[in-house]
């Protein structure tokens, strides 16, 4: 079987994104930031529209908008009151504004599906470089700040008492989120990026005893879902992003259902 270049690039892109998204997703899950992730991911579409209007690279436009979004969310969440509802407003407003902005760009309408659900088979060598560069940066920072991020997750006060600036660690996490969204847009699209972070982490939970274990398992599950999803979508001619995410959902169901069985017996 001859494997085409674009398929190899797609594989590498999927693996790169999954490797960074899954461990980051663990923190998103632990800190109950799933909705936060959604809002940031949905804002990506606005970044696409902006980039096309201003004629700048898509990646740059998306990164700028997702960075702005996480900073707004962080400012808003600091105020505390009614954050949940405000998040809901921001999630859907970001998506609606993005769709609206894109609709003003006549040439882009055809590509809309690609931005919403990803277009992994169209990954260029430059995309691939951005994806792996971004993924390496995310993973590197996660590993470097791991213990500080973890104690901040457990309790900001405990972190602070240990001399760790909890707010700074939280900010690092949100910046990593923004970067991951920008990196993953091409692969799974604005609607499903958060899924690629959260579902592998959730699927890994019943199998893990330590945070590190959970992150490693999530990375493994996410990576296999990326590879498996790509193969399945190629074989059955299904959209790749949704296939990958569906596969993680199957994993989630399996680990949670089998995870329950021995616990009941014990």
């Amino acid at each position: 079987m001859i494997i085409d270049d674009f398929l190899i690039r797609a594989l590498l892109a999927g693996v790169g994104v999954a490797l960074a998204a899954a461990p980051l997703g663990c923190f998103i899950v632990w800190q109950r930031m799933a909705y936060f992730g959604d809002a940031t991911a949905h804002a990506a579409l606005l970044g696409v529209a902006l980039a096309l209007m201003l004629n700048i690279p898509i990646f740059g436009g998306v990164l700028a908008v997702t960075l702005a979004m996480v900073l707004i969310l962080t400012l808003v969440s600091d105020r505390g009151v009614g954050f949940d509802a405000l998040l809901g407003v921001l999630v859907h407003s970001a998506l609606a504004l993005g769709l609206l902005a894109v609709s003003f760009l006549p040439n882009v309408r055809v590509d809309l599906i690609g931005y919403l659900f990803g277009d992994i088979l169209a990954v260029s060598p430059l995309d691939l470089a951005l994806i792996w560069g971004g993924a390496a940066l995310v993973l590197g920072l996660l590993i470097w700040r791991w213990n500080a991020l973890l104690i901040t997750t457990v309790s900001p006060e405990l972190a602070q008492a240990s001399g760790i600036a909890a707010r700074r660690e939280h900010l690092i996490l949100t910046l990593l989120l923004a970067l991951s969204v920008a990196v993953a847009l091409k692969v799974v699209g604005a609607l499903l990026i958060a899924a690629l972070m959260i579902i592998p982490a959730g699927a890994a939970r019943p199998l893990a005893r330590t945070p590190e274990g959970m992150a490693l398992i999530a990375a493994a599950l996410g990576t296999s879902a990326a590879i498996g999803g790509l193969m399945l979508s190629f074989a059955f001619d299904t959209p790749t992003g949704p296939t990958i995410v569906s596969l993680t959902t199957v994993m989630f169901a399996v680990t949670h259902l089998t995870g329950l069985a021995p616990r009941r017996g014990a």
Partner: peptide
């Protein structure tokens, strides 16, 4: 402790140092 966070006592004692 978040239900989604697996954390043993031993690991907790090793945070952040």
């Amino acid at each position: 402790i978040e239900p989604s966070l697996p954390l043993t006592v031993q690991r907790f004692l090793n945070l952040p140092h």
